[in-house]
Amino acid sequence: MRVDLFDFELPPENIALRPVRPRDAARMLVVGPHGAPDDRCVNQLPSLLRRGDVLVFNDTRVIPAQLEGKRGEARIGATLHKRIDLRRWQAFVRNAKRLHEGDRIAFPAGVEAVAEQRHVDGSWTLAFAGDEPVEVLLERAGQMPLPPYIAGKRPTDAADQQDYQTMFAAEKGAVAAPTAALHFTPGLMAGLAEAGVAHETLTLHVGAGTFLPVKAEDTADHAMHAEWGRIDALTADRLNAARQAGGRVIAVGTTSLRLLESATGEDGIIRPFEGDTAIFITPGYRFRAIDGLMTNFHLPKSTLFMLVSALMGLENMQAAYAHAIAAGYRFYSYGDSSLLLP
């Protein structure tokens, strides 16, 4: 499909630079297969779901993966986005034209890495010196990697250390938050449990590739960056049992959705999964694992807007986004939410 079909105009004032407080006070647009979108609030979610439904959260934890360093006098910025092994990470590099294979980059707090290999997509393999786990080095030298549409308008600060982690964050490895779950609070989870809505967790370490624009003119020519994920056998079994009992599996976030779909066969059975996924979902895709999606509002011409258009229909999502923009919904990572029920 033509990528320009997924374009729309978003006024800058609709981009959220901070989250609302409390988190579950964010607005939520409920979109069904027919009829006008319904303006709600996240804290109304227990009354909008059914007893027996299951929400699936991503428990990845964002690491301070943004690094600023020097190669000689040249300033080098690096955003780690995928672990290769204990000492090596793949990274997107700023000012990469000043970098050559074998160059040593000095980061703050005595952290050093060697630019080991340049990849065809322009990213680099960085090999970190020393014996400490890279995550420990990042705690000393790194910063929280806010999305470019926020970081370009204000610096990262202490509030982001908490604001950009979900209440489920446990497994370190993401360089971007699974932002749909930022809206959840212990109080909201208690209300959902009382309403008979269960929840499960999986892990998908979100990479910085989630922010990359689609540069191809046709979706067939776009290559997704792989991300590592895991669904254990007990979680898969419980999700299958919930669906067999008539419950709906509702992914909280596109990351949860992509991993669930990667783990599900043509027979609709969710299976244990551990490894990389580069699944790219566009209109025409037949969903096998999920019955709904809770997600924030996405960028024009992004793979994520293509995904929600695949779930709900392109015209339906274009109308929903036009409504959201006109109604002043807040977009992107710190913005409002939507509940999509095909």
Score class of each variant (00 low, 15 high):
residue 211 F to G: 01
residue 221 D to G: 12
residue 285 Y to L: 12
residue 310 A to P: 14
residue 280 F to G: 05
residue 294 M to H: 11
residue 200 E to V: 07
residue 249 V to H: 08
residue 238 R to W: 14
residue 234 L to T: 09
residue 223 A to M: 08
residue 250 I to C: 05
residue 200 E to W: 11
residue 278 A to T: 06
residue 292 G to H: 10
residue 246 G to F: 13
residue 243 R to V: 06
residue 277 T to H: 05
residue 221 D to P: 07
residue 183 H to V: 00
residue 174 A to D: 03
residue 262 S to G: 11
residue 228 W to N: 09
residue 271 R to S: 07
residue 306 M to S: 08
residue 288 R to V: 05
residue 192 L to R: 07
residue 248 R to T: 10
residue 258 R to C: 08
residue 214 V to S: 04
residue 237 D to C: 12
residue 248 R to E: 10
residue 207 G to R: 13
residue 246 G to Q: 09
residue 306 M to K: 09
residue 173 G to F: 11
residue 283 P to C: 12
residue 257 L to E: 03
residue 309 S to G: 07
residue 293 L to V: 05
residue 245 A to Y: 14
residue 244 Q to P: 09
residue 245 A to R: 15
residue 245 A to G: 14
residue 214 V to H: 00
residue 239 L to C: 12
residue 289 A to K: 07
residue 232 D to E: 13
residue 191 G to H: 10
residue 194 E to R: 15
residue 261 E to P: 06
residue 287 F to H: 07
residue 178 P to L: 03
residue 252 V to C: 01
residue 235 T to E: 11
residue 275 G to W: 10
residue 280 F to N: 02
residue 278 A to L: 13
residue 244 Q to L: 15
residue 211 F to M: 07
residue 303 T to G: 07
residue 247 G to R: 08
residue 218 D to A: 14
residue 190 A to D: 14
residue 183 H to S: 00
residue 190 A to Y: 08
residue 206 V to S: 01
residue 264 T to W: 05
residue 301 K to C: 14
residue 204 L to R: 05
residue 255 T to R: 03
residue 291 D to A: 11
residue 182 L to P: 00
residue 217 E to M: 13
residue 290 I to Y: 03
residue 236 A to Q: 07
residue 208 A to M: 11
residue 208 A to P: 04
residue 184 F to Y: 08
residue 284 G to S: 11
